[in-house]
Amino acid sequence: MSISKKQISNLLGLIASTENDATDCEGCFSHLAEFAELELAGREIPEAFQAIQRHLEQCPCCKDEFDVLIEGLKALPPEDE
């Protein structure tokens, strides 16, 4: 199949953003809640979460879910306290 210019630039974007990924979608998911709380609190990402960060930078599926999660959490009342 022939692919469009946009698809080629998407492919090159995917290639350019490729780094070693020490985790996968499941590993990312199992720490996503804590990661989201760090993000919402505006805290620096500790070393232990760098792998999650790197996975999110490379996996559009998980990134979409993360972005939606953050929006959803913002809509919750700040109770819990």
Partner: peptide, 18 residues
């Protein structure tokens, strides 16, 4: 218990929804 319960629950719900 590494996050709030509601954050954890939202994480699951978001994944199911997407």
């Amino acid at each position: 218990g590494r996050s709030r319960f509601t954050t954890w629950a939202m994480t699951i719900a978001t994944r199911v929804a997407i």
